[in-house]
């Protein structure tokens, strides 16, 4: 009874905050609502007995993804008013499409019945006396090793993609060359000079690091919007 009540409460909050994510005028509010939605979804998982998923959802989505979103939203000076420009225009069409889809899904729901052997076909039956995490771990690396590895490859590709599309090797950026650093010796970097008292150091005696290559003027940064102007400028026509 309590569980049912809790389910409906959490589900309601989840739906409302999901709607707010889309409709909130301030993007920061949107992200905050998103975090709220994640928390409620985690609660729903808990009610369903999937405590591992609930915790993962909180740690990964709330702890990492949503916060990242927040950073991005706050750091990028996105003109949300401009993005919302078409809102008025598309709203009626969108509403109509949504309404039709909704009615149809209701129809689908009307015809709902479980296949007689649905229970037996269910995936990943949890053996008795085994904790949620344990059960997941047992099948993840055995029965589902193929899918697990594939998911790993998907992540690898995502990483490569992020690097390919954003990493820029600028001429002006300074890299640490560990090999060169450790290869230095006192002999090459120190020179002992004897300076007469009161004479000061002659201008030529001051050693300054010689630039290896002539410096090129820094690349013009597009839009003046701080980091990575050009590659975010994929204009949406």
């Amino acid at each position: 009874m309590i569980a049912t009540l809790a389910f409906y409460v959490f589900a309601l909050i989840l739906l409302v905050s999901a709607a707010m994510v889309v409709t909130a005028r301030n993007p920061v509010h949107s992200v905050l609502f998103l975090i709220m939605a994640f928390f409620n979804a985690a609660a729903l998982f808990l009610i369903a007995g999937a405590e591992f998923l609930a915790m993962i959802l909180v740690i990964v989505y709330v702890g990492a993804v949503a916060v990242l979103f927040l950073f991005v939203v706050m750091m990028l000076d996105v003109n949300f008013a401009e993005l919302r420009e078409g809102y008025q225009r598309y709203a009626p069409v969108g509403a109509a499409v949504g309404a039709v889809l909704f009615v149809e899904l209701l129809m689908v729901l009307g015809g709902w019945h479980f296949a007689p052997d649905a229970a037996s076909l269910r995936l990943g039956q949890i053996p008795a006396g085994v904790s949620n995490t344990d059960a997941l771990g047992r099948v993840l690396y055995t029965d589902y090793v193929l899918l697990f590895q594939l998911a790993g490859l998907v992540l690898l590709v995502a990483m490569i993609g992020a690097i390919v599309l954003t990493l820029r090797d600028r001429k002006t950026s300074r890299h640490q060359d560990i090999g060169r650093q450790t290869a230095r010796s006192a002999a090459t970097s120190l020179r002992m000079v004897t300076v007469a008292i009161g004479a000061g150091v002659a201008p030529g005696d001051i050693l300054r690091p010689q630039p290896e290559a002539p410096l090129t003027p820094p690349e013009p940064v597009g839009g003046g919007a701080g980091h990575g102007g050009p590659h975010h400028a994929a204009e949406i026509r």
Binding site: V93, V97, V100, L101, R237
Partner: peptide, 14 residues
């Protein structure tokens, strides 16, 4: 426009 494209996909689906 991505929005138009997405809408047309959804309309087609519906």
């Amino acid at each position: 426009s991505i929005a138009v494209y997405a809408f047309s996909m959804l309309i087609g689906l519906v």
